[in-house]
Design a protein around this nucleic acid. Structure first.
Length: 580
DNA sequence: TCAGTTCGCGCG
DNA sequence: AAAGCGCGCGAACTGA
């Protein structure tokens, strides 16, 4: 097999620089000694250009001159194809390489092109099988790239890069014919930002965190004792011999908690927050909530978070799934930074490095604005255009009160109404949701009444719902063209929600891609994204500039897709994530 | 015993 | 007819 050259064994990179620098398209793959770019190493870099042997470069043996050439090749304006670029970009960056030119990410493309038929998995092997009809041979132990390299490893590494060229040749026309060039561009431009977020990580103030952990442990113990007191000696179970024996109570067992509640006069079917809502004044229910709160905080956040700190950078590098949700939203895990409690006690532990500031910006009501755009609701559009407060407007419309007389609690209730009813929430759902999320009491009659008045007031939303009800779409698209295949049994709520949530995600991703360019010169790092919120860490001297750029870029990012409704983002300079 | 599923709940 | 949606994670539970 002469289709690849192993450098420097088979020559110098320098001897290939001419065509590499002139190429329109380069496929790039890397092999590394592990998954973490901060503690593991780049071992191989494979470069594939149409009509040339694949260059497999042993990065360990690359001399200074050839490192410089590789660097130049990566900086050209040519299209760079990667499979999961987020990964390679981070390892390249850790070794001092930046990548210029448009990125084509075969994994993201496959995500977008995915139909109900597949491909189900998005590994390179699955993609080659699905799009090219070729089986990629998998070699045992090919993943160990730390020691002596075997010829077979090099062959596979070379082939991985080579197939990327072929994949793009098939996927580009597929993206075109399916009208997804637009969204593909957004995703491809966004991937650099996602790589940057993962690579940068976020700093956790361990001193504060430990104090909070200790405090919560005490709260846990108190709540635990109080709850155990209800059980007393009453928790008994027949043993093998039919004798009643006292068994220990596991407060994390919903089964046991259910029995305990029932024994104490709380007749519920399950122990969820929603079912318990009518009993929220019962002391035992109050105690259970306190216990669960403390338990969740400890086992979900306080205890696992310190182990996520990277030994090398001392920061937390979460993993982001760029197309993690079916809607197109990103997901986050290991650990999930997107679900850190909003409580200032938690958020204030996330801080910028010394000499840096945080810049935090979020969109104002982006999903409601997107819904107004998609539904073409005149009243909502008008409200947003004139800078009105949609929650106050809704409160006024459903209660018949003049806008200037709307109280804070009426606005709070309207918030639940706006967010709930736009996505097909029923009266009962609205009642429970208002209670849970907004602490608003509402009778079922009131909820029914609000529901009716709401759809009377927002005729565009009502029309939009009606048309979907009448003719439930099997396929729909976000404002940028992201495509959704709906299952036959898809509920109305999903049909309403998915394109709205997805369009908002598209706009955030567009903003992230733009930021990679607009923030240049500010030395800002993008360190987090939480659906409608973007976090930066910036040298303090540049924070005003970065905040202005961030706000402007986020607002600009939606203009093309939201012709009728303005987007508003608010940016703040902060010394921790708690200041919003 | 252990992988897979379900519940409950944190976030948007 | 009626229906919020989208995630990830820890702990308990289930089933072979």
């Amino acid at each position: 097999m002469n289709s690849y050259l192993f450098l420097p064994r088979d020559g110098k990179l320098k001897d290939h620089s001419d065509y590499l620098l002139r190429a329109d398209v380069i496929a790039i793959d890397t092999e590394t000694t592990g998954l973490d770019p901060h503690t593991k190493n780049l071992r191989l870099v494979q470069l594939a250009v149409h009509g040339k042997p694949v260059l497999v470069i042993d990065f360990y043996l690359l001399d200074e001159i050839n490192v410089k050439i590789l660097s130049e090749v990566l900086l050209t304006k040519s299209v760079k194809i990667f499979q999961n670029a987020k990964f390679d970009l981070q390892f390249l960056r850790a070794s001092g390489f930046a990548v210029n030119g448009p990125i084509f990410d075969t994994m993201l493309a496959a995500h977008l092109l995915r139909t109900s038929r597949g491909p189900k998995r998005l590994g390179l092997g699955a993609l080659v099988d699905f799009f090219l009809g070729v089986k990629l041979l998998k070699e045992e132990q090919r993943s160990d790239f730390s020691g002596e390299l075997r010829e077979a490893q090099l062959e596979y590494a070379a082939n991985d890069a080579k197939v990327l060229l072929e994949l793009r040749s098939v996927m580009t026309p597929a993206l075109k014919s399916n009208n997804m060039i637009n969204i593909a561009k957004i995703e491809f431009e966004c991937v650099k930002a996602v790589a940057e977020i993962e690579f940068s990580g976020i700093l956790l103030d361990m001193t504060q965190w430990e104090v909070l952990t200790k405090k919560t442990k005490e709260e846990y113990k108190t709540a635990e004792q109080k709850l155990l007191d209800y059980a007393g000696k009453s928790i008994v179970q027949p043993d093998f011999f039919g004798n009643q024996t006292i068994v220990g109570l596991n407060l994390n067992s919903n089964k046991q908690i259910l029995a305990l509640l029932n024994d104490n006069g709380v007749s519920v079917e399950d122990t969820s927050k929603r079912s318990l809502s009518p009993y929220k004044e019962e002391p035992i229910v109050k105690n259970l909530r306190e216990f669960r709160k403390a338990s969740k905080m400890l086992s979900g956040f306080l205890e696992p978070m310190p182990s996520a700190i990277n030994p090398k950078t001392r920061r937390i590098h979460a993993h982001y799934g760029q197309i993690g949700a079916y809607s197109g939203r990103m997901s986050c895990g290991n650990p999930n930074i997107q679900q850190i409690p909003r409580d200032n006690a938690f958020r204030s532990c996330f801080i910028p490095a010394l000499g840096y500031s945080m810049v935090i910006a979020d969109y104002s009501q982006i999903e409601l604005r997107v819904a107004a755009q998609i539904a073409h609701d005149e009243r909502m559009i008008e409200a947003y255009r004139t800078g009105g407060d949609l929650h106050i407007l809704t409160a006024s419309l459903v209660t018949g009160t003049r806008i200037e007389n709307i109280t804070k609690s009426q606005r709070q209730a309207a918030k639940a109404i706006n967010f709930g009813l736009i996505f097909a929430m029923g009266a009962r759902g609205l009642q429970a949701y208002s209670q849970d999320v907004y602490n608003v009491d509402m009778t079922i009659e009131e909820a029914e009444d609000f529901r009716e008045r709401y759809f009377e007031a927002y005729k565009g939303i009502s029309r939009w719902h009606d048309s979907i009800k009448k003719n439930p779409p099997r396929v729909s698209r976000s404002l940028t063209g992201r495509r959704y295949f709906h299952r036959e049994d898809a509920g109305l709520a999903g049909l309403y929600n998915t394109p709205v949530q997805g369009s908002a995600a598209d706009i955030v991703k567009n903003a992230l891609g733009m930021l990679v360019n607009t923030l240049k010169g500010t030395k800002a790092m993008i360190i987090g994204v939480v659906h409608d919120e973007i976090l930066l860490e910036v040298p303090s001297g540049n924070s005003f500039k970065a905040a202005a750029i961030l706000k402007r870029t986020m607002e600009e990012a939606g203009k093309k897709y939201m012709p009728d409704v303005p987007l508003v983002a608010e940016a703040k300079i902060a010394s921790s994530w708690a200041e919003k």
